[in-house]
Design a binder for these strands. Structure first.
Length: 532
DNA sequence: CAGTGAGCGAGCTTCCGCTTGACTT
């Protein structure tokens, strides 16, 4: 008998099916060891971490140990990334006590082929990856546990917190609020001309924008009872490529918007769909899709919508970190659907998005018309129109874009406006973040990971830093104080590029170019550098 | 005798990231 160990019990089930008789597959349920919660757990002089059993994990690993005793070979199939490598490292440390035949197997998708290849090519733990995890973990602990007390002391409130992720995130929310508070109402004025030609209504706008309506008045006088001549008509075809399939962030943002629920709820529902075997792994930053599945989906598109709607499997530029474990979020099969109404809505959203990503471009025809006042050719107006000439992917994943109709116009044609008027346009202040837009911003900045995006928001709420108001995140008084304090005292931590700086250093550790403790020391010094 | 400071004990807040299931409300 051989033993195969993964993180997720759902994966364990699938893999057990592929491997068949002679194999036992077990799951760790994520990390098994971590720094102790109630103390720093890091020797501040040597930076030596103290990893202890996570609650309930000793029991799980004891169970795995029992199986390991009887196993011929043991394969550590935890996720192929920093955190997964650390789990494998601690597993090996324990399992060596009962069996020395231990191998590290990595795979990037759960197919029979990928698993078989992983077993064939199994090797040993990558200690550089493990070291990078230590760096990340210890640095986060130092920042969290050493800096939070500053807030308790100086802001005289208990329960406040500082973190590499949460604090810059809070800064985003607070800075946006300040932009809104300091926003100067600004209005602009446009001159518009309305026409009806062949029963089609359209409007054209004067090339110049005015700060005050009185500035537009002299032009309005000149435009009294004026006729227009069509100077030029042009058009161009525009391709609209399909959207990418979902990853964690885009699913959270899109589903919370469309279904009107929190990103936390989206994530919990997605987890349930995953456990029921209806979708792929829901915590991923990748847009990759399994080739065979993509082929199958494209055949479905051809059967259902016709050949013209079949696109191709596109390659997307992935963030460096998205190299990791999992493909995009997609249905496992188009026939297996959930029963509950809300879950079905989410599943359908995921399915149609995955299908749309494999569908053809939509094609839009855009028109541009230039009109001149017949009496004075310096008075130039323009009109734009557009029309969807081929719906492509938008047939599968609806996108709301209205056509703007223009009548057929010939150069030199003279037309009479129905009316000419001044339109007031007020520039709106920037909006507060929604949970979805915040999570999108974090992903773009490289802050946080797919497994934590939803909990970051929860932490900010729990600390009393933000409240949800009509679906938007609003910072509290305390949030302003905390951000101002941290910006003054630890500006390097509050820099949106800090995580990127850390990641670059972790990359160096992973490549064996830097010592992990040196990276912690340097980064932590950088955080403190401001004053203290 | 007032003021200072060493020493000691009580209370104990907090990080990010990996994964679910066992809790409570």
């Amino acid at each position: 008998m051989n033993l195969f160990i993964v993180e997720s019990p759902t994966k364990a089930k699938s893999i057990a099916k592929y491997l068949g008789n002679g194999w036992v597959v077990r799951a760790t349920l994520g990390h098994i060891k971590d720094l102790p919660e109630r103390e720093l757990g890091v020797d501040i002089k040597t930076l030596e971490p103290k990893y202890v059993w996570l609650k309930g994990k000793k029991k799980i690993v004891d169970g795995i140990k029992k199986a390991a005793k009887k196993a011929k070979k043991i394969y550590l199939g935890t996720d192929p990334d920093r955190e997964g490598e650390a789990i494998a490292y601690f597993l090996k440390e324990e399992l060596l006590k009962v069996n020395t035949s231990i191998y590290r197997a990595t795979f990037y998708e759960i197919t029979k082929k990928a698993i078989t290849e992983a077993i064939g090519g199994a090797s040993d733990i990558n200690l550089n990856l493990v070291s990078a995890q230590f760096s990340r973990r210890v640095l986060d602990r130092l920042i969290g546990y050493k800096l939070s007390p500053f807030l308790w002391r100086d802001l005289k409130e208990r329960g406040l917190s500082v973190g590499r992720v949460q604090s810059p995130t809070l800064r985003l929310i607070v800075e946006r609020e300040r932009q809104i508070q300091n926003f100067k109402r600004k209005k602009y004025y446009y001159i518009k001309a309305e026409f009806v030609v062949d029963g089609v209504e359209f409007s054209a706008v004067f090339k110049q924008r005015f700060e005050k309506p009185s500035n537009a008045e002299p032009f309005m006088k000149k435009l009294k009872d004026v006729m227009f001549v069509v100077k030029s008509v042009s058009k161009e075809m525009q391709k609209e490529p399909p959207p990418k399939p979902f990853n964690t962030v885009s699913l959270q943002a899109e589903a919370s918007k469309i279904l009107g629920i929190s990103v936390d709820k989206v994530q919990k529902m997605a987890q349930k769909l995953y456990e029921e075997g209806l979708i792929t792994y829901p915590r991923t930053d990748s847009y990759r899709m399994n080739k065979e599945k993509a082929q199958e989906f494209m055949k479905y598109i051809e059967r259902t919508y016709g050949k013209d709607y079949v696109g191709r499997l596109r390659k997307y530029k992935e963030k460096a970190l998205a190299w990791g474990a999992h493909e995009c979020i997609r249905p496992t099969s188009l026939d297996k659907k959930p029963e509950s109404v809300l879950e079905l809505k989410l599943w359908s959203l995921i399915s149609s998005r995955a299908l749309a990503s494999l569908s053809s471009d939509a094609i839009r025809e855009k028109f541009f018309v230039v009109l001149l006042a017949l009496s004075d050719h310096t008075l130039e107006f323009t009109a734009e129109g557009s029309k969807l000439v081929f719906d492509g992917w938008t047939r599968i994943y609806p996108k709301e874009v209205k056509d703007r109709a223009l009548p057929h116009l010939e150069e030199g044609q003279v037309i009479k406006p129905k009316r000419i008027y001044i339109e007031e346009v007020e520039v709106p202040p920037p909006p507060r973040y929604t949970e979805g837009s915040l999570v999108r911003t974090l992903e773009n900045l490289g802050i946080g990971r797919p497994s934590t995006y939803a909990t970051i928001i929860k932490t900010l709420k729990d600390r009393g830093y933000v409240v949800l108001e009509k679906g938007y995140l609003k910072p509290t008084e305390m949030a302003f104080k905390v951000v101002d304090y941290l910006m003054e005292k630890f500006p390097n931590l509050m820099d949106y590029g800090f995580t990127k700086y850390m990641e670059d250093n972790l990359d160096a550790v992973e490549e064996g170019k830097k010592d992990w403790k040196e990276v912690v020391r340097e980064s932590y010094r950088r955080v403190l550098n401001a004053k203290e």
